[in-house]
Computed example of a mutant assay.
Amino acid sequence: MPVTDVTTDPEELTMTLSAEFAAPVERVWQAFTDPRELERFWGPPGWPATFTEFDLTVGGRVRYEMVSQHGEHARGAWEFLSIEQPTRFEVIDSFVDEDGAPSEGMPPGMRVTYDFEPTADGCRLRSVTYFTSVEALEEVIAMGAIEGSTMAMNQLDRVLAGLRAYAQGKGTQVEMLDDAHVRITRLIEGPRELVWRAHHEPDLLRRWMLGPDGWSMTTCEVAPEVGQTYRYEWVQNGVEGSGFGFEGETLLVDPPRRAATTERMIGTDGPTVINDLTLEEEDGATLLTLVMEYPDAETRDMILATGMAEGMETSYARLESVLAGETAVH
Rank of each mutant, 00 (worst) to 15 (best):
249 E>M: 04
240 E>L: 08
221 E>L: 13
165 A>M: 08
221 E>V: 14
224 P>N: 11
208 W>P: 05
199 H>R: 14
199 H>E: 10
242 S>K: 14
206 R>T: 07
195 V>L: 02
233 E>F: 05
173 Q>I: 15
208 W>G: 04
194 L>M: 08
188 I>M: 10
235 V>S: 15
202 P>W: 00
227 G>D: 09
174 V>M: 10
223 A>G: 12
200 H>L: 11
231 R>G: 09
190 G>L: 04
214 G>R: 05
183 R>A: 11
208 W>Q: 08
192 R>Q: 13
227 G>L: 10
214 G>P: 08
224 P>Q: 09
223 A>F: 09
230 Y>I: 07
215 W>K: 09
236 Q>N: 13
206 R>C: 02
236 Q>L: 09
250 T>P: 03
227 G>E: 11
213 D>G: 06
167 A>L: 05
221 E>Q: 14
193 E>M: 03
205 L>V: 07
232 Y>T: 04
188 I>R: 09
231 R>E: 12
176 M>P: 07
199 H>V: 06
191 P>C: 06
232 Y>P: 04
226 V>R: 12
201 E>F: 02
191 P>R: 13
172 T>R: 04
187 L>M: 09
220 C>H: 09
232 Y>G: 03
199 H>F: 13
163 L>V: 11
184 I>K: 07
228 Q>S: 13
189 E>V: 12
203 D>L: 07
170 K>G: 10
225 E>N: 15
220 C>Y: 09
245 G>L: 04
170 K>Q: 15
211 G>A: 02
248 G>D: 00
183 R>Y: 04
237 N>D: 15
224 P>V: 05
178 D>K: 02
211 G>R: 02
171 G>L: 05
179 D>R: 04
249 E>R: 08
238 G>Y: 14
245 G>H: 05
184 I>V: 14
195 V>D: 02
241 G>P: 02
180 A>I: 06
187 L>F: 07
246 F>R: 01
233 E>S: 09
249 E>D: 04
207 R>C: 01
196 W>K: 03
202 P>A: 00
219 T>M: 12
176 M>T: 13
191 P>M: 04
